[in-house]
Amino acid sequence: MTTLIKLEIIRALRNKKFLFFSVIYPPALYLIIAGGADSKPIPGMKLDMALYFMVSMATLGALTAVLMGNSERIAKERETGWVRQLRLTALPGRGYVAAKMASAATVSLPSILLVMIVAAAVKGVRLEAWQWISIAAGTWLGSFVFAALGVAIGYLATGDAVRPITILCYFGLALLGGLWMPLTSLPQWAQNIAEWLPTHAYTALGTAVEAGGAPHVKDMAILAGYLLVFAGGAAWLYRKDTRKA
């Protein structure tokens, strides 16, 4: 499994388009959105635009890396027969799913760190050392939830359908999760839905630390629940796909 993880990381690093959208695009978008914003607190929150969008763009970069990259790559591997070849090895199904999740989450780390570096260097974001470490660690660990979702979509959809399905999930989760704009600017019904979405809980891990507190138990429980559902669904779809082969 370790060999497969290394192989997946190398393949991702060689994909220039993937690196642009998952590593370069989030910090660039952060500068566009928060670059001209003032330091006044966001209505209904204790954070200003620079702080809020530092976390939201870091999570967006991680989401792009683990969801967009994973789903399309797996769908293509199924069509080309690569997954069928892996089944001839001693690698178990759970090992394949775990390797895909781990490799995707590992590649997401540069995006998270780069957004934080840009926020500190360009926007003058200043936090305590424990806050920087906690935000980076929480954002990285939370990306495993969406890495599992990417694996599930990759086995659920065909090569032609995987991209529109992934894009729909990506933009829907990003918008309602508060990644593009604070939830306080959305209608109340959208805020009520967002409270139970994994992207909102994901972003809330970092914003809670920025505000000087600890992540809320509810948000961590929501993420843990989605991780079990997505990982379990990915494993079931893998076994189902194996029986078809």
Rank of each mutant, 00 (worst) to 15 (best):
M1D: 08
T3A: 15
T3K: 07
L4M: 07
L4W: 05
K6Q: 09
L7F: 11
L7P: 00
I10G: 04
R11G: 08
L13M: 14
K16Y: 14
F21R: 00
F21Y: 12
S22R: 02
V23E: 05
A28T: 15
D38T: 14
P41L: 12
I42A: 09
M45R: 13
M45W: 10
M45Q: 14
K46E: 15
L47V: 13
M49P: 03
A50V: 12
M57G: 08
M57Y: 12
A58K: 01
G61R: 03
G61M: 05
G61V: 08
G61Y: 04
T64P: 03
L67T: 13
N70Y: 01
E72N: 15
R73L: 13
I74S: 02
I74C: 02
A75K: 01
K76P: 01
K76I: 14
R78F: 03
T80R: 01
T80G: 00
G81W: 03
R87D: 11
P92T: 09
G93Q: 05
A98L: 09
A99L: 01
K100Y: 03
K100H: 08
M101V: 13
S103R: 00
T106H: 02
M116K: 03
A119W: 03
A120N: 05
A120T: 11
A121G: 03
V122R: 00
V122K: 02
V125P: 07
R126G: 06
R126C: 04
L127S: 06
L127Y: 05
L127G: 08
W132H: 02
I133C: 07
S134Q: 04
S134F: 04
A137P: 01
G138R: 00
S143E: 02
A148S: 04
A148W: 00
L149Y: 00
G150C: 04
V151R: 00
I153Q: 02
A157M: 14
A157C: 14
D160Y: 06
V162E: 02
R163C: 04
P164V: 10
I165T: 14
I165C: 12
I167Q: 10
L168R: 02
C169G: 06
C169E: 06
Y170H: 10
F171S: 08
F171H: 07
G172C: 12
L175N: 05
L175S: 10
G178T: 09
M181H: 09
T184M: 09
S185W: 15
P187H: 12
W189A: 15
A190T: 13
A190H: 06
Q191V: 13
N192R: 12
L197E: 11
L197N: 09
P198S: 10
H200S: 15
A201I: 04
A204W: 06
G206H: 03
A208N: 14
G213Y: 07
P215Y: 05
P215M: 10
H216C: 07
K218S: 13
D219G: 06
I222F: 03
I222C: 07
A224G: 15
A224T: 05
Y226A: 00
L227D: 00
A231P: 00
G233Y: 00
A234F: 04
Y238M: 11
K240W: 13
D241K: 02
R243V: 15
K244D: 15
K244E: 15
A245G: 15
